[in-house]
């Protein structure tokens, strides 16, 4: 049999002018955002480098934040352990409270609510996301603080045998618990929105299969929708966690800033990295400012890592849909 001579053919794609312009514009936008991110990180590293060099790893592990005396007799000492722990504790409280609500709201909106309720409720949720955090902060300080202090008191009286529900003094306002509750409200829209998206992608044919085998609606949700949306939901929770970690003004207004690692969530003491920066920024010495920049860089990296993990998980959930 005669062999056929196969020649490699070069494929030339000729794009139209509009296509080329659009391509360039998109590429520029994408590169610009990434460059901006890199520039922010570089700026923070550049400004905070001296503090990293002076304090090394103890910048992360020490809880002491002291700008030192102006005459240099008392040297400055910077460590963000208390604030890092505070960030994590408030964010965990926030996600623990927000996630069950987000799941319920998402399932209700996707599978139970009639459309005349679904549309306005979705709009309200989007609106909640648009409220500036200072408004949350003021509301948290003036209303939630006193309201939740009562809940905290009850929690303490019932569960004070659990160490993190103990308090050193019977003061229940301005605690990580209340800051966490406020953050929960703030991250509810994003977490709900991701939960809705993943639940809406649950395979309709499998839901029908569950019905076809005698399953109830709740049975179908439990056995098809929820397992399907599990990893997407984790991603949504982590996106919420990312936001909660970086929240500044609301925490600054609600939480009583204390430079001590506090794991007793009902105690009136705490703080997070972002609120530390907001509190100290205006009166900081030039050297302390470098410390705040270094703290900013750590927060930036932690939030970036959490968000990147969340994106990975959400994408994996989409790809396995």
């Amino acid at each position: 049999m005669e062999s056929t001579d196969l020649k490699q053919r070069e494929i030339v794609i000729r794009r139209g002018l509009a296509d080329r312009i659009f391509r360039r514009a998109m590429a520029t936008g994408a590169i610009l955002s990434l460059s901006l991110l890199a520039l922010i990180a570089s700026f923070l590293l550049f400004r905070g480098f001296e503090v990293f060099r002076d304090f090394g790893f103890s910048f992360i592990t020490s809880a002491k934040w002291d700008s030192g005396s102006a005459d240099g007799v008392t040297p400055a000492s910077f460590g963000i352990a208390a604030m890092l722990v505070g960030s994590v504790v408030t964010a965990i409280i926030a996600i623990t409270v927000a996630l069950p609500f987000a799941i319920c709201v998402a399932l209700f909106l996707e599978y139970y609510a009639p459309s005349f309720i679904r549309k306005p409720l979705t709009a309200v949720l989007d609106l909640v996301a648009a409220i500036p955090s200072v408004i949350y902060g003021i509301w948290g300080y003036t209303i939630l603080n006193n309201l939740a202090a009562g809940w905290a008191k009850s929690l303490n009286s019932w569960f004070d045998w659990i160490w993190f529900f103990k308090v050193p003094a019977p003061i229940f306002t301005r605690s990580p618990f209340i800051a966490g509750l406020l953050l929960a409200l703030m991250i509810l829209p994003i977490t709900t929105s991701v939960a809705r998206e993943v639940y809406s992608q649950a395979p309709r044919d499998q839901i029908d299969a569950a019905y076809g085998l005698g399953g109830t609606k709740w049975g179908a949700i439990r056995s098809v929708v929820m397992p399907f949306g599990r990893s997407g939901l984790v991603g949504g929770a982590m996106l919420g966690l990312g936001r909660a970690l970086g929240e500044t003004v609301a925490v600054y207004l609600v939480l009583n800033l204390v430079f001590k690692i506090n794991l007793q969530i009902l105690a009136s003491a705490g703080g997070n990295v972002a609120s530390l920066i907001a509190t100290r920024f205006s009166e900081a010495t030039p050297y302390e400012l470098k410390g705040l920049m270094a703290a900013g860089l750590v927060l930036f990296l932690v939030t970036l890592a959490v968000n990147a993990t969340a994106t990975l998980i959400v994408n994996r959930a989409r790809n396995t849909a």
Partner: peptide, 15 residues
């Protein structure tokens, strides 16, 4: 769920 039919789907739809 109240008809109690048994269905074998064309694309099976196993969980």
């Amino acid at each position: 769920q109240d008809r109690h039919c048994g269905v074998v789907f064309q694309d099976l739809r196993l969980f």
